[in-house]
């Protein structure tokens, strides 16, 4: 009895296993053809930082260094300088002349994003962060800045005097 039963169980088990195999044979594949093909990230994914611009092309970053102060990994280096109306990078007096993130140190905690008073630094979707040397692990401002939006002008801009006197725009409280 038990022998027969054992044999039957064995067969059953085999087919149960094969059923999975056959099912997976016809279901769509999980793997994608990375890097030709890319999977979308979750909405709250924290990827590589992007430095944002206003619609007119001015940089949102005002060089306040609060991101750098907030960074627990000491990955961010900011060096500010003074804007003039002839050579304006951002609204207000101060802009980031140098903005660097050492991606070897970054832990993607997003504190920089939280600390930013102008919503200039945003952790984006990009997770492709390979580099071949320590030197190239330091992402510069030119690299991090998003492209000039349509209708905007690249920085530095020559602007009307007295228009961009405020560093921090009046922002509504976040609603979510």
């Amino acid at each position: 009895m038990s022998l027969v039963k054992d044999a039957l169980d064995g067969v059953k088990a085999t087919f149960t296993g094969l059923a999975t195999t056959f099912r997976e044979m016809v279901s769509p594949p999980v793997t994608i053809q990375y890097p030709e093909e890319k999977r979308p990230v979750r909405t709250r994914f924290k990827g590589r930082h992007v430095l944002k611009r206003y619609d007119n092309g001015l940089e949102k970053c005002i060089g306040c260094s609060l991101c750098s102060a907030a960074c627990p990994a000491d990955a961010i280096f900011v060096e500010a300088a003074e804007n003039t109306d002839d050579e304006r990078y951002s609204p207000g007096e101060r802009y980031a002349r140098v903005y660097e993130i050492n991606m070897l140190r970054c832990i993607f905690c997003g504190y920089c994003e939280d600390a930013c008073p102008t919503e200039a630094i945003v952790l984006g979707d990009n997770y492709e962060l390979s580099f071949t040397s320590r030197r190239s692990s330091i992402y510069t401002k030119e690299f991090l800045l998003e492209p000039v939006p349509e209708g905007g002008k690249p920085t530095p801009q020559k602007v009307e005097p007295g228009v961009y006197t405020r560093s921090v725009p009046v922002m509504k409280d976040p609603e979510d």
Partner: peptide, 9 residues
């Protein structure tokens, strides 16, 4: 020193 660095740095 104007705009050269933040004091805590």
């Amino acid at each position: 020193f104007r705009f050269r660095a933040r004091p805590w740095e």
